[in-house]
């Protein structure tokens, strides 16, 4: 554990808190991509299968929180707040993301075991799971401030894992090419968003695409 990873994980928790807070206080899930949320649940379920055979207090607790909160968000979106979700603006073709991640996972896992292939699948899928959400923001051309805070916190989480990997490489020669390449791709996908977030939202203006 180091400060970068801890901060990254905290940002991840904060992003989930912001999302659930936004939905429960406004009683609406407008502006949130159901497809991205469903992909995240798929990511957590396929990555955290090791809950069944490994236990570490910090990791196991976080894994259960991520799976549980993700399932709760999907419950809110398909149950109580379903009328506020507009599928007509949530049209990103997720089958290509799932297909691409599945192909990469089958071709280049560290070991050809079900758990390793699913873990690799989850790493690739997570790197692109935000795309339906970003696509939705791009289509509507604007986003509620709270939604932008959510996307920022989620992006900051993986961005902070990069200095974590550099730190781990320098202190214990940790080197996991898959996590690192996918993590960098994930962070790059957020970069445009980060730029607009910094230049607009943090200066008190509305998030609107130029």
């Amino acid at each position: 554990m180091n400060i970068f990873r801890l901060a990254g994980d905290l940002f991840h928790l904060i992003s989930i808190f912001i999302l659930i807070h936004k939905m429960t206080t406004s009683k609406s899930c407008s502006g949130i991509s159901f497809k991205s949320q469903a992909l995240y649940l798929l990511v957590y379920v396929t990555r955290y299968l090791d809950l069944f055979w490994t236990f570490a207090l910090y990791n196991s607790t976080m894994k259960i929180i991520f799976i549980g909160s993700s399932a709760y968000v999907l419950h809110l979106m398909t149950g109580p707040f379903k009328p506020t979700h507009d599928p007509n603006i949530d049209t990103f073709k997720v089958r290509y993301l799932i297909g691409g991640a599945a192909i990469l996972a089958l071709l280049f896992p560290y070991k050809w075991t079900p758990a390793e292939v699913l873990w690799t699948f989850s790493i690739w899928l997570e790197s692109v799971a935000i795309l339906p959400q970003l696509f939705m923001v791009q289509r509507t051309g604007a986003a509620e401030t709270i939604t932008t805070h959510y996307i920022f916190a989620l992006g900051a989480y993986r961005a902070l894992y990069i200095p974590n990997w550099i730190y781990r490489y320098l202190t214990s020669t940790f080197w996991d090419p898959l996590s690192i390449i996918a993590g960098v791709i994930q962070t790059v996908l957020y970069s445009d968003f980060f730029y607009i977030y910094y230049t607009k939202v943090l200066q008190g203006r509305k998030f609107e695409l130029p």
């Binding site: 990873r5 994980d9 991840h12 090791d50 490994t54 570490a56 990791n59 976080m62 894994k63 991520f66 560290y110 070991k111 390793e116 873990w119 690799t120 894992y161 974590n164 940790f174 080197w175 996991d176 090419p177 898959l178 996590s179």
Partner: peptide
């Protein structure tokens, strides 16, 4: 295996 080290991350 590289992924064993990565498994201690989230």
């Amino acid at each position: 295996v590289a992924s064993d080290a990565a498994k201690d991350e989230l």
